[in-house]
């Protein structure tokens, strides 16, 4: 195989300046150091990853990390739009937070919503991916069909959803009435018992095509021989699923669980435009809705930032769990 890329040029040019000094050292010293580095498990292009990562961190730093730091600062101020004078108030916003029952209730609501959306979207995505990974006529058509909800703008998804769930003439009543025992139209989003399940269903509908797509890609990356070997052994489909497919795609499922947690944690449009956190008592009001209301409707940017930082800490905890699991997976793979 002939490689057109000049490895030396790329490798060297991306070294940090510290290495230039080393070039003036004696050849013996360099050789010794090279050997030492190899012992430590470093390869020759050890500066490349740092250059790549620095590029990405710098990019994200400008657009995301810097704004996050700013919000963190805001949470220690009294920045309410129109206040006499913006000053630092120390931990006062955090004191308010701990006494704020609505905040703690919103955290509960957020966890409930997240749990159902994560489980729902990942399992539905897995189910769809398993079904559509089989060979059959019209498979591409079905795959495209399932991706459609994802392609839909959220605003329009909400509009048609509201239309379907209208208590007076929504088409959902037609379906609901097929269930024995239901003779009258339901109140749907105005019903305190139905509001949350409906919002969750809408969110899963919108999100699962994404998990489906990624899981499908992971399924296709499983080498065919792995299955062939199992078939020779006479394993039935369920055994194949349990002992081969699922273990092979566990990292993907894990990743999807994290991404769906983030998706559901940050979800705003789908909840705000359907229930607005109601029907009453904040039954469907997640943290993000509360943040939005506080900052943009009540003009209290400081407390909005405080809520944001608290949510950030909560989700960070969840993510640490994931990274830990991922690292264990990685180590197992590299061993």
């Amino acid at each position: 195989m002939v490689c057109e890329w000049d490895e030396g040029r790329i490798g060297r040019s991306s070294r940090p300046p510290g290495n230039i000094e080393r070039m003036f050292q004696s050849a013996t010293a360099e050789a010794v150091e090279e050997r030492a580095r190899q012992r430590r498990g470093w390869n020759r292009h050890h500066s490349l990853p740092y250059a790549l990562v620095l590029l990405i961190v710098a990019y994200l730093g400008v657009f995301i990390l810097f704004p996050i730091a700013q919000q963190f600062l805001t949470s220690f101020s009294n920045n309410v739009v129109g206040v006499d004078k913006v000053t630092w108030v120390g931990l006062r916003n955090y004191e308010r937070l701990f006494e704020d029952e609505d905040f703690w209730f919103a955290v509960q609501v957020t966890f409930t919503y997240m749990a159902f959306v994560v489980v729902g979207a990942v399992s539905l995505g897995l189910l769809a991916a398993l079904l559509l990974n089989r060979k059959f006529r019209g498979r591409n058509l079905a795959r495209s069909a399932i991706a459609v909800p994802w392609a839909f703008p959220e605003i329009s998804a909400v509009l048609v959803f509201l239309w379907m769930c209208n208590p007076t003439f929504g088409v959902m009543n037609v379906f609901a009435r097929l269930i024995p025992g239901i003779e009258n139209n339901l109140n749907w989003l105005s019903d305190p018992k139905l509001a949350m399940p409906l919002v969750i269903a809408l969110s899963i509908w919108k999100a699962f095509p994404f998990t489906f797509l990624v899981i499908l890609a992971a399924l296709q990356a499983i080498p065919r021989e792995t299955y062939e070997a199992a078939e020779v052994d006479g394993a039935n489909p369920l055994q194949v699923l349990r002992h081969i497919t699922i273990p092979e795609i566990t990292p993907t499922l894990l990743l999807m669980a994290v991404l769906m947690s983030i998706f559901s944690f940050k979800q705003f449009t789908l909840i705000w435009l359907t229930t607005g956190g109601g029907p009453y008592g904040g039954i469907t009001e997640t943290l993000v809705l509360r943040i939005y209301q506080t900052a943009f409707r009540f003009f209290d940017l400081a407390y909005g930032a405080t809520l944001g930082v608290s949510g950030f800490v909560i989700v960070l905890g969840l993510t640490l769990l994931f990274v830990y699991a991922q690292q264990r997976q990685d180590r197992a793979r590299r061993r």
Binding site: P49, Q71, K266, I291, A295, Q327
Partner: peptide, 25 residues
């Protein structure tokens, strides 16, 4: 594919960027 220190921290940093609602950023 590359070996370097701070891989886990980088992965975590990436996810951290996703945890603040856009409305605040």
């Amino acid at each position: 594919f590359l070996r370097w220190r701070g891989k886990a921290a980088f992965g975590l940093l990436l996810l951290m960027t996703q945890m603040l609602p856009e409305a605040l950023v």
